[in-house]
Amino acid sequence: MKKDDNAFGVEEAADSPGFLLWQVTSLWQREIRKALEKYDLTHSQFVLLASTMWLMQQGEPVTQILLSAHSKIDPMTTSTVLRTLQTKGLLERKEHTTDTRAKTVALTTTGEKLARQAIKTVEQFDTDFFQALGSKLGDFNKKLRLLLQQ
C-alpha cells in the first residue's frame, strides 16, 4: 500500500481535521473539568448556568427550550441538568405564565454568585488555553461559527 493510498484519504493522522478536533476537544474538556471542580459543577451545568444568566439579562423569560437551543444541549439533557442545578439550590424552575407546556428558569442569588465566579474562571482558562493562537483567535472563532451553521 502506497503512503497516500489509505482508507482515510490523509497521509498522517495529524492531517485529519476530525481527529485533530477530537484531540483538542478532549484536552480542552479535561482541563475545563479541572477548572470547574472547585465550584462542584460539570461543564454542562456551567454552560446552562452561564446561559441562564446571559439570557436573563436580555429581559425575556428564560425557558428550558430556549436554554436548550442557545446552548446546543438536547432538551432531555437540559431538563436533567436543570433538575440537578435546582436540587443544588442554584436555580428555580416555575410554570410559564402563558404557556402551560413550558417552564421558566431563573437563577437563585446563590446560583448567580456561583455563575459569576465560574465565568471568570472559565474566561481566564480560555484565555490561557487559546493564547497559542495569538492574533489568529478571531479567525479561529469565525471558522468555528461556520462549522456550527451546518
Score class of each variant (00 low, 15 high):
residue 26 S to C: 03
residue 79 S to R: 13
residue 134 G to C: 03
residue 76 M to V: 14
residue 147 L to H: 03
residue 114 L to V: 07
residue 149 Q to H: 06
residue 54 W to M: 09
residue 85 L to G: 00
residue 102 A to L: 07
residue 94 K to G: 04
residue 118 A to L: 04
residue 138 G to K: 05
residue 114 L to Q: 01
residue 135 S to L: 14
residue 95 E to I: 08
residue 13 A to V: 12
residue 101 R to L: 12
residue 89 G to H: 02
residue 131 Q to L: 05
residue 150 Q to K: 11
residue 134 G to N: 08
residue 115 A to G: 01
residue 70 H to W: 08
residue 100 T to F: 09
residue 78 T to I: 04
residue 5 D to Q: 10
residue 73 I to V: 13
residue 71 S to R: 05
residue 1 M to G: 12
residue 92 E to N: 08
residue 16 S to K: 03
residue 16 S to D: 11
residue 62 V to K: 00
residue 26 S to D: 07
residue 4 D to L: 14
residue 19 F to C: 04
residue 3 K to L: 13
residue 147 L to R: 05
residue 77 T to P: 04
residue 115 A to Y: 00
residue 134 G to E: 06
residue 88 K to H: 05
residue 7 A to H: 13
residue 103 K to W: 06
residue 70 H to L: 05
residue 145 R to L: 15
residue 126 D to Y: 01
residue 101 R to E: 11
residue 40 D to Y: 05
residue 123 E to A: 09
residue 120 K to M: 11
residue 140 F to W: 15
residue 49 L to E: 00
residue 3 K to T: 09
residue 134 G to I: 08
residue 65 I to T: 06
residue 30 R to Y: 12
residue 87 T to D: 15
residue 129 F to H: 02
residue 135 S to G: 12
residue 86 Q to H: 06
residue 31 E to W: 03
residue 91 L to G: 02
residue 52 T to C: 09
residue 8 F to G: 01
residue 20 L to I: 12
residue 54 W to T: 06
residue 47 V to H: 02
residue 60 E to N: 15
residue 134 G to V: 02
residue 9 G to Q: 08
residue 129 F to E: 03
residue 62 V to Q: 01
residue 56 M to E: 15
residue 131 Q to M: 08
residue 32 I to G: 01
residue 71 S to V: 04
residue 60 E to S: 11
residue 106 A to K: 06
residue 33 R to T: 09
residue 97 T to Q: 13
residue 107 L to Q: 00
residue 60 E to C: 08
residue 8 F to A: 06
residue 31 E to A: 06
residue 129 F to G: 03
residue 64 Q to T: 13
residue 30 R to W: 10
residue 129 F to Q: 03
residue 67 L to M: 05
residue 92 E to D: 09
residue 60 E to K: 07
residue 9 G to P: 04
residue 143 K to R: 12
residue 1 M to L: 14
residue 124 Q to P: 01
residue 82 L to S: 03
residue 19 F to S: 02
residue 48 L to Y: 09
residue 48 L to C: 02
residue 46 F to G: 00
residue 74 D to L: 07
residue 33 R to A: 07
residue 58 Q to S: 14
residue 147 L to D: 01
residue 143 K to W: 09
residue 18 G to P: 00
residue 108 T to I: 07
residue 47 V to Q: 13
residue 14 A to R: 15
residue 114 L to R: 02
residue 148 L to T: 06
residue 119 I to K: 04
residue 79 S to Y: 13
residue 10 V to T: 11
residue 39 Y to A: 01
residue 48 L to R: 00
residue 54 W to Y: 15
residue 150 Q to E: 07
residue 122 V to W: 03
residue 136 K to C: 14
residue 50 A to R: 05
residue 69 A to W: 11
